[in-house]
Design a protein around this nucleic acid. Sequence first.
DNA 1: TATTGTTATACTCTATAACTATA
DNA 2: TATAGTTATAGAGTATAACAATA
Lengths: 144, 144
Amino acid sequence: MIRTTLDTAALAHDLRLAVTRFNRRLRTQRVDTSVTLTHLSALSTLKRHGPMSAGELAAHERVQPPSMTRVVVALEGMGLVSRTPHATDGRQVVLELTGAARDLLAAEGQARDAWLSGRLQELSEQERAVLREAAGIMDKLAAA
Amino acid sequence: MIRTTLDTAALAHDLRLAVTRFNRRLRTQRVDTSVTLTHLSALSTLKRHGPMSAGELAAHERVQPPSMTRVVVALEGMGLVSRTPHATDGRQVVLELTGAARDLLAAEGQARDAWLSGRLQELSEQERAVLREAAGIMDKLAAA
DNA sequence: TATTGTTATACTCTATAACTATA
DNA sequence: TATAGTTATAGAGTATAACAATA
């Protein structure tokens, strides 16, 4: 019991530091500087789950509504997201990807993640399997 | 070959999103608001590797020197780090943890990582093993 | 001349509080 | 009243460019 507690405390510590540094590295690796990682994350969620309200997207992304407003304003300005009034609830705004966003996301597979893809290919198949599982677990933790 | 490329591209994508959201979650989980995660990461590195110059610490943390200057100024202001001139090279500044920082890091194991520790204990032993391995791999990637 | 560190400045990311509009 | 979203404001985190001091 104590052993487990000690283990998880140490793991929490190491995992937090690793994520901090890895995230830093990923953010600075940007090639196309117009669309940031935050923007891309929001777009990816819209692509995966389809049109949704601003509040729903904020919840998906684990940010507060005002933070999402900012992101959406920027994305609309870039012509990547459309904002239309909800059909029956006038308070809500429905967000939807534009064709330009779909094009961007399609191209992104080759360009945006190029650096990380390259590094991943240098790993062993077993290491990639670990990261694949870890990604799912981290998503679960982020939602907890 | 193509299969592997496709796999790593998809993994790069999913891993990036997972890290983005997980990192967000960790940063917002702060309890003690005086010392931020960035500060804590720098302190942990100093603890693990011992006294070093500002440039070395910046390299360890994967940030640019001016960014580290800011962090160090803040930490010195809180009495957590001392800055002393290098013995032989007058350009360098040697950074060292203070006793207060050691106390803080010792207490941190219980307080700071409490949220994450709690979540980790809800996982299976196998999932924790995956994260343990993943932390090492992510550190390697951050340094690549 | 090259290196180490700092200052000046600016942009991204995110939050809380207060406000508006609609239900 | 309660909910959805926005505006206003602020703080954390990080970068590039320019500078000073030392090697």
